[in-house]
């Protein structure tokens, strides 16, 4: 696999399949990338930096998906082909087959958007070559991206129950627990669940997972409040200062958060922290308008980003370097 639009869903599919195939015994998934730098420059040295960054991201995703599974699934990460120059589909297939033999892997899942040849379509020949080497090959049956993102995902019983419960409790919190409120609340919650259950959750909600996130969110909220209060005072100072010391600028950076809800949380947190205003977000690329030099610095320190990663993926993910360390600083053109 390599970085692609369908990679996230392919990882989810692989984890699900591994959990389904495990039958109690722990199953192991190997996420494998081909060394990529030499596909561009055959004579250059093998540069594993990008590949390891990709694998780190995949491992965070896999952890997220594993949290929702009962069966135990082991995850291994690997880069293959660093020791040789790969050119044709059968060379790629050889490299992968060697890896599969060495690690006792019998089934290969390919990301449908994966394309090893730089530019030339090579996925189909690769799959054929892999089959010839007695491997069970399939493309992950994931949705290709469309021009308009699909809102409708499949609704499951658990999603309906979660949405129904949440809206019913909310209704009762505003109501008074009378018979009338219970009945109308039930109707309303039913309607909300029917309409929204397929949309709200990206993947299966599980109680433990939600509880953990709620606790982390409860840790995050006071921190965010404190940041808001502190920064508001700074803005009050700037606005009330006679000479209006502002130096506004549009900046762009790629945030290291993934998925709809985390990105939305980060975007809104950035807007709430005064001096920074999220103007546009595409995938992970943020366009942020900042009021003063100091607020820009704060943004690139990445403490907010870190906190959001902590809420959704725990402490390990919080240790990913800040935008400044990643060299994401950039002015908008």
């Amino acid at each position: 696999m390599a970085d692609s639009v369908t990679l996230r869903n392919t990882v989810a599919y692989a984890v699900e399949e591994a959990a389904a195939a495990s039958d109690g015994a722990p199953a192991t998934i190997h996420f494998v990338v081909f060394e990529s730098a030499r596909a561009v420059d055959p004579t250059g040295p093998a540069d594993l930096g990008d590949d390891h960054e990709l694998l780190d991201r995949v491992s965070v995703w896999a952890d997220e998906d594993r949290a929702g599974q009962e069966a135990s699934v082991e995850v291994e990460l690997a880069v293959v082909g660093a020791d040789r120059y790969l050119f044709s589909p059968d060379q790629y297939a050889d490299a992968l087959a060697d890896y599969a033999a060495a690690h006792d892997v019998d089934r290969v899942v390919l990301d449908p958007e994966y394309d090893p040849g730089s530019g030339a379509p090579m996925l189909w020949p690769l799959a054929t070559e892999l089959q010839r080497r007695d491997l069970d090959v399939e493309e992950a049956p994931v949705e290709r991206p469309r021009r308009q993102t699909v809102l409708g995902r499949t609704g499951t019983a658990r999603k309906y129950v979660a949405i129904f419960g949440a809206s019913f409790l909310f209704y009762q919190a505003l109501g008074a627990w009378t018979t009338f409120d219970l009945v109308t609340g039930g109707l309303t919650a039913g309607l909300v669940a029917a309409l929204l259950a397929p949309i709200v959750f990206g993947h299966q909600p599980s109680l433990t997972h939600l509880a953990v996130q709620t606790v982390r969110m409860a840790v995050y909220a006071p921190y965010l409040l404190w940041e808001i209060a502190k920064a508001n005072l700074q803005i009050a100072y700037v606005v009330l200062h006679p000479s209006l010391p502002i130096d506004p600028e549009m900046v762009e950076f790629d945030a290291a958060v993934w998925g709809d809800t985390p990105v939305t949380t980060l975007a809104n947190s950035i807007t709430l922290t005064p001096g920074t205003l999220t103007v546009d977000v595409t995938e992970q690329s943020f366009v942020v308008h900042s009021l003063t030099e100091a607020t820009r610095d704060g943004l690139f320190e990445g403490s907010l980003e870190r906190a959001v990663r902590f809420v959704f993926w725990g402490r390990a993910a919080a240790r990913i370097p800040s935008p400044r360390e990643r060299g994401e600083e950039g002015d908008d053109g």
Binding site: A229, A231, N232, I235, V239, P274, L277
Partner: peptide
């Protein structure tokens, strides 16, 4: 009133206001 353009004014209107 004091800030110069739509973006900076949105800063004032959205955040100090929220708090």
């Amino acid at each position: 009133v004091r800030l110069p353009d739509v973006y900076t004014r949105t800063h004032a209107a959205s955040k100090s206001d929220t708090l």
